[in-house]
Amino acid sequence: MFLNINTKKLNPYKVASHKVWNIKNKDTILKLDWNESTIPPSPLVKKAILEYTETGFFNWYPNVDNNVLREKLAGYSGVNVSNIEYFSSSDGLHEYIIRTFLNEDDSILLISPTYDNFRAVAESLGVKTEHFRLNKDEGYSFNIKALMDNISTVKPKALYLCNPNNPTGNSYSKEEIILLSETFSDVLFIVDEAYFEFNGVTVADLVNSFSNILICRTFSKAFGLASMRFGYAISSTENITGLQKVKNPKSVSAIAQISALAALDDLAYVYNYVEEVKKSKVIFISELQKRNIKVLQSTCGNFVFVDFGLNCVDIINDLENNNVFIRYYGHILGAENMVRITVGTIKQMQLFLDILDSILICYND
């Protein structure tokens, strides 16, 4: 009886399977459902955490103004320290963006299907969501003229653009984002670069030229720190100052800050993993196609978007019975029978294919 009207009518974000936490032997699990790194983070992370357990101050709140961390993030991103702020995950950043820049009854446009948690957060805070839908029959291809026509019609306060897009994998060029930002200077373009390390396309160098660009990034993918919940924003100094006014300065744990610093000290480890995933993805797509499984042609991100057809749910259940977990998208409009599969190492994806083959035999008899 105490729920507010936004919560009452909210369609919540659907999480990936929680079954992995109920399996005692975690070594038997192939977790390919949430696009986390499929290997542990740099050994420097564990070393830094262990050192903190000996010398850290667990009874204190965490560092609320970690400028060393900001400087490292700024150096990695190629921007000034004044263009950076860190948060307890990019999901946490999404909430602060909406609270900082949007009013209740403002509207935000999403290029759909896309990362659905942003939609859920916006609606929970009373922000209206509109959708520019990519067409499954056209391979979820992107038409910038059609989007610009839609923006002119809807007149949103902000547009959420995941680049590369999760789950479809299509990428938006820097030139396209510049055109959008120039044409619609009164629209805030929230560019989610969660998969930047795998894609290499960024508009970070534009944030001082375009005050309507705000970038979200995370350490949950290439850096292997999903459980630490660490992300950061890149934007104009004015936008960053606005976010800092709303952010709870105690919200990013000491362990998350220490982990991020250690990970940034071992970028070679991250880059090696990214290159392994890129090679693995090429092989994996080819192998799926040999099995007559339709794969969206995308070289972006550490995942593939796949059409498993009418037996989709049964195949997913059979994979789970073998401790293999992938992401089902049947709950998303326009993504029926589609699944997203995180791409890990070559060895991990071969294991996936071996298990999949044992399952497909039952459907091909």
Rank of each mutant, 00 (worst) to 15 (best):
M1S: 07
I108F: 12
K174I: 14
T100M: 11
Y96Q: 08
A226I: 11
N6T: 13
G309E: 11
L3K: 15
L50G: 02
R217K: 14
D137K: 07
L264P: 02
Y61D: 10
E193T: 05
L206R: 08
L261N: 01
I332K: 06
F210T: 09
V324C: 05
E175I: 06
I144K: 01
F184Y: 15
E104P: 15
F219V: 07
K247H: 06
T241V: 04
K157D: 14
E193H: 13
R340G: 15
S236C: 07
A158S: 14
L360P: 02
G56T: 03
N6Y: 15
I234N: 00
F210D: 09
F189S: 09
K72S: 02
T28I: 09
Y52H: 08
Q350E: 13
E95G: 13
W21E: 15
L179G: 05
G330L: 04
A335T: 01
S17V: 13
P41W: 05
W34E: 06
F101N: 12
V270L: 08
M228K: 05
T28R: 04
D27T: 13
Y61E: 09
E85K: 08
W60N: 05
V64W: 00
N199M: 07
N248Y: 04
S358T: 12
L125S: 10
G344W: 08
F132D: 00
S259M: 10
V121L: 13
S42M: 06
A74V: 03
F196N: 12
T7P: 02
L159N: 14
V68M: 01
Y96A: 06
N150F: 12
S77V: 07
F118N: 04
K294W: 11
A233E: 01
A226T: 06
I326G: 04
N364F: 01
K294P: 11
A268S: 13
Y271H: 15
L110E: 13
D192H: 12
K24C: 05
N11M: 05
T237W: 00
N292Q: 12
V304F: 04
N311P: 03
V274Q: 11
M338I: 02
L288H: 08
S235T: 05
Q244K: 11
N80S: 09
L73C: 00
L134P: 07
A263G: 07
H131G: 10
I98D: 07
L360A: 01
K9L: 15
R119F: 10
K26W: 06
S77H: 05
N317R: 15
S90R: 09
L147S: 03
V282C: 10
S211R: 10
S358A: 11
Y232I: 03
N4S: 13
F230P: 00
L32R: 01
A335D: 00
T299I: 13
N239V: 04
K9D: 13
N170F: 02
S298Y: 01
E336D: 12
E36S: 13
D137Q: 08
I359G: 03
L109I: 14
N272Q: 14
N163K: 04
N59M: 09
A335M: 04
D365N: 12
I283N: 10
T28M: 04
I332D: 06
V203Q: 04
E104T: 15
N80Y: 03
